[in-house]
Amino acid sequence: MKVTMTVNGKSMSGEAEGRTLLSSFLREELGLTGTHVGCDTSQCGACTVHVDGRQVKACTMFAAEAEGTDVTTIEGMANADGSLNTIQQAFQDYHGLQCGFCTPGMVMAASSLLEQNPKPSETEIREHLHGNICRCTGYHNIVKAIMAASGQDVPAVAAE
């Protein structure tokens, strides 16, 4: 079947079977490979996107269910001029990523958090990231990056 949705502000269509997940549709049909797939039990959050403004794991939804929705993926997060947005910039500034595989999901989760809660505490950040696994960073610098992106004070990244 043909499925159409707005992705990062543009109307996009592609073929999907009934069983096609939104995550595979974005990656395989639309070529938006920034959305990653790290598990098959909806536990890791690497596939996190926004659907109609809500944080959603794209592997928990069929592509057909997203018909007519407004989807934002990591490819749609940078500023209009292509520069990193505040959250992305904070991830770079505070070394909130290593291999980068969990990163798109982390940025999407962080941006939802800051929309709901512009000044989250460390505990609130850690709790919000419950569905996003990172194997590289120990979350330390991800938490700092999100604090910084929300305009809160964080200690410098490393003694220089």
Binding site: T33, T35, I74, Q92, C99, G100, V107, E160
Partner: peptide, 22 residues
């Protein structure tokens, strides 16, 4: 000795990394 920011981050943060499955 400098805590230089990582240049590879830009592609990972914008979804333009190229992993094998891509």
């Amino acid at each position: 000795g400098a805590s230089t920011k990582r240049r590879e981050d830009v592609r990972f943060l914008t979804g333009t990394g190229r992993y094998t499955d891509d």
